[in-house]
Simulated assay, not measured.
Amino acid sequence: MNDAYGQVAGWFADPANWYGPAGLVERTGVYLWQCFATLALAALVAVPLGLFIGHTGYGRSVMVPVTGALRSLPTLGLLSALSLLLGLGLAAPMAALTVLAVPPILAGVYAGIESVEGELVDASRAIGFTEWEILVQVELPLAAPLIVAGFRSATVQVLATWTVAAYLPVEGLGRYLIDGLAVHDYVRMLAGSVVVIVLELAANGLFAVLGRVVAGRLPTAKNQ
């Protein structure tokens, strides 16, 4: 085991593995772009829908079981099914990972908005706030910790699962795992896994800090 990690350290020390079209820098950049685009597409769907459900309460009885069902979908199975419809390339994994990223963001947004005390919302209406002002100035600041938690969960999931896209002819860090497996290059596979783990830990840490920051501002938001 120590020898394996020593070989991985040697792999990282070799400049040939860092640069070029198949290098670590290029593939990490592509991977991060893929993950960011997936999260952005998921947020475009989940955030407005979550705000509407959380603020109005409409559709909650339907959305809760739907998000639960989407969370249970197998990533590889969904990717395979969509690849038959959309063909090989970027479209199928982008669509599959977006579908899987929507539920945690959606749940975080509508749960955060719903968690705001009804008395506070009623008081805001009584002093003349519009529904939009209540949402933006009252509910969103108080819901921020749960919203951040939803994005945190989605980000970690997307970072972990975009590697499966390498089953299709798609670039990214997953190529180290799939191509390495094809030629029994386990050092390359382990090196790719280490990079993905580091990215996940970094993202998790950043969202943990962000969660503490927004939670620390809650008393100010309440006073406003």
Rank of each mutant, 00 (worst) to 15 (best):
L85H: 01
G54F: 03
G77H: 02
L79W: 09
G108N: 11
E171Q: 14
L79T: 01
P169W: 11
V64C: 02
F151L: 14
L106W: 07
E131A: 15
A160V: 02
E119P: 03
T155G: 05
L84A: 11
A149L: 10
L73S: 00
E133P: 00
V170N: 06
S72A: 15
G172Y: 02
A126E: 12
F129L: 15
E171S: 14
V109L: 06
A101F: 04
A95M: 14
F52L: 14
S83T: 15
L97D: 02
G77Y: 01
I127F: 13
G128R: 06
V158H: 05
E171C: 01
G174H: 13
I105E: 09
A144M: 15
L140Y: 10
L85S: 10
A96G: 11
W162H: 05
L146F: 11
P65R: 07
L100A: 10
H55W: 00
A123P: 07
P103S: 05
A149Y: 10
A91S: 10
T75N: 01
A96E: 05
P65A: 08
L120H: 13
I147T: 04
A96W: 09
A111M: 13
L76M: 08
G118F: 01
A69S: 07
V170Y: 04
V164W: 07
L168T: 13
L79M: 10
P104Q: 11
L82N: 04
P74T: 00
L146E: 13
T161Y: 11
R152T: 11
V116H: 04
A101T: 04
V121F: 09
L142H: 03
A143T: 07
L173K: 05
V64S: 09
